[in-house]
Design a protein around this nucleic acid. Structure first.
Lengths: 324, 324
DNA sequence: ATGAAAGCGCTAACAT
DNA sequence: ATGTTAGCGCTTTCAT
């Protein structure tokens, strides 16, 4: 290729990268040769030499369930929108929400292959630091116990949850049920803390019978609602979107009127929450923005490893509709 | 690293890849040194040398809309499940359902070393062949006009659509509305063909007033339903999941009883279709299986470029619930 | 304004 | 049973 244009490989490189002056005439010749040979740069060689791949990996439970996947896909879209502008690639990896699977993926991601890793950890305890390669890591949405000196971009779950429950209390509800997945992620924990705090502030006691935690699935949401209902709640706060489907399924099947017999507040403003009867009051998480911020921070970090650690907490919004 | 273990780089390589006999003793030393130095293989160098990256790209409108993204994420999960077993990586790229964006991605991929590309083309006409690099390409879900000698893995949309419409006809419906996105993809086209064929076989005429096509969104589905309803259909077949939300939103708002006043059959069995009132009769596409098949075919193709072209058409299933 | 050449970390052919 | 060495296709320093 260099010979086709009668120039050195150095010149070709400089033409491609605009990295030093090259006469118009020479540029022309190079471009011509590139055209002739349908030349495509070999970015693998480039990565090897420059020690940069311009690939950022996003590791999250994207394929684990229909709904969590939508959340993380929105996040991915946000990441993508930033990376694309800077000519970075996004490599999506799935953690299956399982620590082992996740560790596997991190190992596969290996070293030189990525310039940075954005991840929503599946666990709290794993010794992630030992797995990571020599690239910056940013925790997104959730944070492991030892988040070390890593950048973090999360949602303020506690305050918005508190706001939702306080609203319910303001409407006169005293028996507010809480439904969520297992309390193993910082997100879930914060939501629960918000629930508790709203109760406490209103001088209410948390009642164990009104608290349901279990597997994240429609069926599990259905069953837990069934148990919860035995204790006569007048409202239910469900912190997971798929479980919320279970709640609605149960309520609809038993012809329990919402919000007259029971008020419902759910998490995540996916489209389907608009077409239930009635449309659901939900907490809308800034998923896309989470991705945007994460990508921005990651890029800053890549360009300046010495930057102080950044922790961003984005606020979620309570969207009041007719179920409360 | 090689010196740390007092062996040659060749031996290290062979230990890592199990590619020739190495004495237990030497293996031990190498593994020890790897441990000591927290050695991680440089897959970029490996790719450069071996001309294989073990990365398969999947290019689809994954981030374009909430629903198409469920579908393609399931496909991705299927692809992933196969690739992972063979220690391949999945690189996800988004086409935004726009040809230009898509071409851009292909170009970026082209310079990124991938061993294969699985794509759901956004357009019918683009001269894709000119964009592709030197790797196998497989068309998934949809096919461009010039699918050339490429492998294809698609869904049999026509027959299942026909089955759905025929069922409606069998139930006595004569005025069956058809609602879909713009007729630009092979998928949409096939669904329409199935609708038409069912009508024809029953001796019914297609009525232009009962056919609505437009933007794929909840709002657009709502508006189109509104127009369609002026022509008194007794059933509606909607081939897009997001538009189906618009249909349900309209029907619910206007308190039009389903299926008493109008029957509804929609596309895709996402969870939300179970919690509408009533639960929706839907066509369930084998999304995950589509991905599995595509990945399998791709791997076969990579291992044997001379294999005859493969075209797989998976069947979708009509899931009858209470809306019809 | 351009070229020569080293070398990124591997794999694989060739030696021994 | 293991070592030597030549590249893979780039980027980049040093020359001219």
């Amino acid at each position: 290729m260099a010979k086709q244009a009668n120039v050195s490989t150095a010149t070709v490189s400089h033409v491609i990268n605009g990295t030093r002056y090259v006469s118009e005439e020479t540029k022309r010749k190079v471009h011509e040769a590139m055209e002739d040979l349908n030349y495509r740069i070999n970015s693998v060689a480039r990565s090897l030499r420059s020690r940069k791949s311009r690939v950022i990996a996003f590791l999250a439970p994207i394929l684990a369930s229909e709904t969590s996947n939508y959340f993380f896909m929105s996040v991915a879209a946000g990441i993508q929108s930033v990376l694309k502008q800077q000519e970075y690639h996004l490599m999506l990896s799935d953690s299956h929400e399982e620590e082992e699977y996740e560790a596997d993926e991190i190992r596969m991601l290996g070293s030189q292959m990525i310039d940075g890793l954005i991840m929503a950890p599946a666990g709290r305890e794993p010794d992630y630091e030992r797995l990571f390669g020599d690239y910056p890591v940013l925790y997104l949405d959730r944070v492991p116990h030892d988040s070390g000196k890593r950048d973090c971009v999360v949602v303020d779950n506690k305050n918005v949850s508190k706001e939702a429950v306080s609203m319910l209390i303001g409407q006169g509800h005293r028996r507010i049920a809480y439904l969520s997945g297992p309390n193993m992620l910082t997100t879930t924990e914060e939501r629960f803390a918000g629930y508790l705090e709203a109760l406490t502030e209103a001088g209410l006691d948390a009642e164990p019978d009104l608290i349901g935690m279990g597997e994240v699935s429609l069926g599990s949401g259905y069953k837990l609602t069934e148990s919860l209902m035995r204790h006569r709640p007048t409202a239910i706060f469900v912190t997971d979107n798929v479980m919320a489907m279970g709640v609605m399924f149960y309520l609809q099947e038993k012809k329990i009127a919402v919000p007259d017999q029971i008020a419902v507040v759910a998490y995540d403003a996916f489209q389907w929450t608009r077409i239930t009867s009635p449309p659901l009051t939900v907490i809308e998480q800034p998923a896309f923005e989470l991705g945007v911020k994460a990508a921005e921070v990651m890029l800053e970090r890549i360009n300046n490893a010495a930057l102080p650690r950044q922790v961003h907490r984005l606020t979620a919004k309570l969207v009041v509709r007719q179920s409360s």
